[in-house]
Amino acid sequence: MKPDAVLKDLQKKLGANILEARIAEHAEGGKKKHVAKSIWVKVGKSAFKDAVAELCKMHPNIYFAVISGCQEGDIVELNYHFSFNYAEPGEEFFVTLKVALPKSGLSLPTITNLVPGALISERETQEMFGVRIEGIPDPRRIFLDDGFPQGVFPWRRDETGPQKLVKKINEADE
């Protein structure tokens, strides 16, 4: 499937639940250039799982790379990066599903029943952003030690961020 067809299909199936959508292009190469395309789709929280299911229907062995994200004000925005058409020379492109979660409702359903390879990333999202992944088969921490303080989320920029754990080099020990 081509990027335009994937986006059209998603828009048809999810309708108004797609809040924003764009296809980005970037040309790169030596003497010949390859135009790398990527789809960025923002979906509502309620339609997130349906969007993943639709992608999995379009590409049965979809490749899931990772969950990235950031926190801005009262919103934690997560990006789920999927890839289409891998193993086809020059045809691969990325689909990024963006979902914005208000701090008052930091939870999202697991996608491990659709993409088992997402487990590590979901565990990481839980501990780094404090987003509760509902139905995650293994909710333990993965990259943070069990002794790391509870309620500190290293990828947040608010009062729960890691700033207070950082000791300034010019501050003497008490």
């Binding site: 790169e28 030596g30 691969e92």
Partner: peptide, 22 residues
């Protein structure tokens, strides 16, 4: 047996001129 390789699937740098295969 999964034939995936970024150099082949989404060529970058000089790989566009090379036709690398997984």
């Amino acid at each position: 047996g999964v034939k995936r390789d970024v150099r082949q699937d989404e060529p970058y740098a000089a790989y566009c001129d090379l036709g690398v295969r997984a």
